[in-house]
Amino acid sequence: MAVQDVTTRTAGAGSGVEGTPAAPASGSRPSRNGRRLRALEPLLWLGPALVLILAVVIWPVVEMVRTSLMDISSTGLTRGFAGGDNYADLFAEPDLPGVVLRTLVWVVGVVTVTITVSLALAQLLNSRFPGRRMVRWALIVPWAASVLMTALTWRWMLNNFYGVVNRVLMDVGILDKPVNWLAHPAQAFAWMMAVAVFVSLPFTAFVILSGLGTIPAEVYEAARLDGAGTARTYLSITLPLLRPSLMVAAIINVINVFNSFPVIWAMTRGGPGFATDTTTTYMYKLAFDNQAVGESAAMAVVNFALILLVVLVYLRVVRGREETG
């Protein structure tokens, strides 16, 4: 829509342009034409980004919502408008409440643990010790490895027959017979959360580490002079000053973890049954196992709305606290 605006502005009489503020006042009064061009200048810089956003963000969203309102046959053929039928079908699915609840546990659990562990890791990486550079590099490795690969590796490590986890636990004497970790929903879900934490750690730790780097040394010095202990310093200085980094880390993690597909898909495929599905894998199953593309699109819209809501609420809360604090 913005683009249509652009074309009418260049072609049209340009009465609308009058009101727009010109760039910082220059010495000589520019001609009418020049002023018009000047007013359009920001578009030159915004244009490519706008097109990109339109093409890769807005359009798919529109298409997604449209699909969720269509009656689509199991072959993929669109048979016409379905109104709210897809949504009605979706909310009537007996497995949906469990899946949503599990998604909540998944997101809250993974993000909380990730951030807690990352805080400690970042603190460690921020202190000086021999080999620090090596450790920093080592932390990047799980980040660089593909998530799918990591998840597959873990699936094999947890395998009932060949898995190294069972082997080790049996050799140590903790287990006396192998456990089929990924076959029991609760255990499988716990393991998958652990893997999700594992792959989220590097990014989070580095965001927090960079936050730690921005805290001036003088503040710590002052605290020390005032006689604050380690715990007090951490709680009253480090954590509050880390808030911007923590916020970034939390939001990005919430979005990533919520949308996380490969870990669950590679390790359990959401099974047995739907016992380890989150809304993201459930959405996929609706489309390709249940053959209900429209219903799956409805799930996608619900997912989208959920994540938007979570982020907005989070921002609200954080900003509110900033104002009062």
Partner: peptide, 20 residues
């Protein structure tokens, strides 16, 4: 500048054509 606007329109037209 004009070229740019054309570029934008072309991009959108392409996107619309693709969806169409």
């Amino acid at each position: 500048m004009k070229r740019h606007v054309i570029g934008i329109s072309a991009g959108v037209a392409l996107a619309l054509a693709l969806s169409g």
